[in-house]
Amino acid sequence: MKKILNNPADYVDEMLDGFVAAHPEFYAQPERRVIARPEGATSGKVGIVTGGGSGHLPVFTGYVGPGFLDACAVGDVFASPSAEQMASAIRHADGGAGVLRLYGNYGGDVMNFDMAGEMVDMENDIRTTTVLLADDIVSAGKDEAEKRRGVAGMIYAFKIAGACADTRADLDEVTRVAQKAADACRSIGMALTPCIVPQAGKANFELGENEMEMGMGIHGEPGIWRDALRPADQIVDEMIDRILADHPFSKGDRLSVLVNSLGATPLEELYIMYRKVKQRFDAIGAEIVMPLVGRYATSMEMTGATITTIALDEELERYLKAPAACAYWRVG
């Protein structure tokens, strides 16, 4: 294992110490493994919390900030936070108008967040709702779309739900809009090399020197095929074809696109990919709004990329463009 760290057991806590120290205007850690806004919850505003395993920065906790999220529970690398940490995040997000739990569809996270909701209901009378991201089109077929895992599409849902909550909409309305944003996202990934979970000390999968895997999940979950590395245009064509087969776009449609590095893939290669993405949607006649190219949802040092599309209507586009800020994404 070749990683810059002290003790693998301290990986997450030392990361969070530095994270909060570097960006005190956006993040505070009021309790261990809970990141919240330094000014506390906003009174009268619906709170939005997320949570999940570490190893994906800026996801999850990087998206706490004005116009985005209010709090986040942080687990070990690729492991769910505890229900108590999630309950604590909910309390720190509660401004008296209820709290939306907005996170990725993973079994452990769902169990613990449901449990956390019951805790704050019993102890604090906080009303909570849930919206799960399930945007990875490879992780289950269209007929079982509710079983899909949540990946990079969640950042669009964070942005849009956050903007809706900022209008002082009530919990049901914020939940509706978050669900609408989640339902509009489609993502697909591909990988070239694995990442190493610090406490395991070894790679979570192996790929041959000149191989790639199409459709691989963000934790190295198996994809669709594994074969010799293809040219960028051919890779992007297949990714876009698969997205379009799941969610067609036609002339005049509006969408945003995220071309995201899984960690080690450089911006240069993401732009080579985006060039082809733009050509594809130009050919359809669909207009890309606010494209995002960069490192938004990663798997530590994994080499590879994901492409996410979100179909926009007037409402989603308005919330996407509303002002918001965190250390990794600023709008307006």
Binding site: S82, E84, G108, M111, N112, M119, M122
Partner: peptide, 29 residues
């Protein structure tokens, strides 16, 4: 029962631990 649920959950967040904690939570309600 809620305290039982939380105590259980705190020390054993495996799926069996979460299930037992869930059982305590249901009893709590």
């Amino acid at each position: 029962f809620l305290e039982c649920s939380k105590a259980f959950q705190r020390v054993s967040s495996s799926s069996y631990g979460t299930l037992v904690a869930t059982g305590f939570m249901a009893a709590a309600k």
